[in-house]
Design a protein around this nucleic acid. Structure first.
Lengths: 335, 335
DNA sequence: CTGTTAGCGCTTTCAC
DNA sequence: GTGAAAGCGCTAACAG
């Protein structure tokens, strides 16, 4: 009925251990023998029983994606990148929603990893920054790669994006378009990207010898509503900036709504820029000038270096920082 | 080091088999004995080794979500609903991106299920409608539940939404708002929801003794661009409808853009309605009147009835149809 | 380079 | 109601 390693060994006239060696790509098998085995494998349609492999070797060929309530399109991109990496290596992908505020997060995950013999984890923000949690993983010798951590530890696997540089570049671009009075909406304070983006903005302003106005700098939390509220406040006064840079697209859309409700034309009366190039950026009118991060590629790389690591392949291109692209669209006008 | 069933049996002074009975909730264990065992389980912190269970019993306590390139926010909702159901039962969730056009879809999935001893599958459109594929699953005795199939087979597990009724209701609502000249943008022809929504629209029009105009009925494919193109065509003529109902929100956003580029005010010059209540519906301005389907709940239910089935619990509330809500927002105006 | 043996941790089978 | 024995399919450890 089901073909086992034993059947293959009989068919190929070798020991089962030799078959095992071949299917695990171990050294010390003569080319000749290997070929013989592979022929039998193919002929019989043999597929190793993962449960048996897992029971014996304590690995599952499964990796897990951990996330805590992210933006939906971000999640889909991350997941897709990881999945594609898994496809290439034959690994499978389990997903695990977490609550980063839960007191038994650590235990839940440790049990999860232990139960399924998960080979490694991929963490997304804000999990990427939970040092406690990461230490617990280290202590338990659980392999992981983090996406977009705020502090990049040389000894750990990570992928990151250049939030600071991208925000700096976008701000410079806005300035190049002739804007001198630029507002900024900050992102969620717990999210490491928020301060990076803000710093990029501020430094660009300062380096171009411009000044900021505290009335134009508002605290948001990445939600549409927080952007809308910030916009309402800003547009309430008579003295409004000529451009506003929001730390993400949802907030930028919120600002656009508040501006349009005030009767302000975009981009004629006010220019708007966002960050992320989420689906909405291109489906709103006027379309948003924004920054695109290669999220799927980043996640793909994270999965690749993770799997390379526990397969003993220490690649040279390990952890790395990815560049973002400026996407110029109609919401930004030249003054 | 790791606690096994043997350790528990020693501690509780019963046989291994009895411990096994207890952890699997089998019958024929005296209450007394059961308690004793559970105490030891807790005391020692025993967790059954899934690989061993799986090797022996050929089940994995894993279910899989299969999808083919869906809308990102739809995927996130479906996934979340399934995940929550899994949490309750202790199952794990593996995800599998598919290409429904691939000639080896069937084999890929059969191997996947067989390799991981996946206990059951959840299918999303368009996989839900691939009869070939479903037959292959049946033949191989693979359990599955489908989300939003076009034909609901009594013998299979499914969850569906009332696309037809919802489209009928939304159209009636538009008519109630005084509109007599209503355009419609169809969805992707391969997607079963497309014709249901269109039929709901047409029937509402006819039952209200109104007429349609072929120039106002366009074929789209659920993409923003297809909505935009349809809008450009419609607004190109002098004779334009007073309202347009697009089969999903992305296309509605596309129409809004084409209208606004033409200088048409929404909803003063033209009313727009969408379908799905995707994130964009509420982040665009003016906000979209649309239909909200309880996608997460549907997926949650699908997972529940699937797991109930292979755990031998034949619930009374099996397959079921979920109701949608009309969401009235600014894009629809009373004439 | 190849093979033998033992045993991972559990459930199945069958006996009592 | 309970238990003893066998063995799922594979890999680790060792021997040669």
């Amino acid at each position: 009925m089901t073909v086992t390693i034993k059947d293959v060994s009989k068919d190929a006239k070798v020991s089962i251990k030799t078959v095992s060696r071949v299917i695990n790509n171990e050294a010390n098998v003569a080319e000749e023998t290997k070929k013989k085995v592979l022929v039998s494998v193919k002929k019989l349609g043999f597929r190793p029983n993962k449960s048996a492999q897992s029971l014996r070797s304590k690995r599952s060929f499964i990796i897990a994606l951990l996330y805590d309530n992210p933006n939906k399109s971000y999640l889909a991109d991350v997941q897709s990148g990881i999945f594609k990496a898994c496809k290439l290596t034959g690994y499978n992908l389990v997903i695990q929603e977490c609550d980063y505020k839960s007191p038994d997060l650590n235990n839940t995950i440790l049990e999860f990893v232990n139960d399924l013999k998960i080979d490694g984890l991929i963490l997304t923000p804000p999990l990427s920054d939970m040092d406690d949690f990461l230490k617990d993983l280290d202590k338990n010798k659980i392999e992981y790669a983090v996406i977009a951590p705020s502090t990049k530890k040389a000894e750990s696997l990570y992928v990151s994006s250049n939030d600071y540089e991208a925000a700096y570049k976008l701000t410079s671009e806005i300035i190049k378009h002739g804007h001198k009075q630029i507002g900024f909406i900050k992102g969620h304070p717990k999210h490491s990207a928020s301060s990076l983006r803000f710093n990029g903005f501020i430094d660009a302003i300062v380096n171009h010898s411009l000044e900021t106005n505290d009335d134009w700098i508002k605290q948001g939390n990445f939600s549409f509503k927080s952007g809308f509220d910030a916009g309402v406040e800003i547009f309430h006064s008579e003295n409004i900036p000529s451009a506003i840079f929001a730390s993400n697209d949802s907030m930028a859309a919120g600002i656009m709504k508040s501006a349009q409700m005030k009767g302000l034309k975009i981009p004629d009366d006010i220019s708007i820029a966002g960050f992320d190039d989420s689906p909405i950026a291109d489906e709103i009118w006027p379309a948003l000038t924004t920054v695109r991060q290669p999220v799927e590629k980043m996640a793909n790389h994270a999965a690749k270096i993770l799997m390379a690591k526990f397969n003993g392949i220490e690649e040279s291109n390990q952890s790395k920082e990815f560049k973002s692209d400026l996407i110029l669209r109609e919401s930004l006008k030249t003054l």
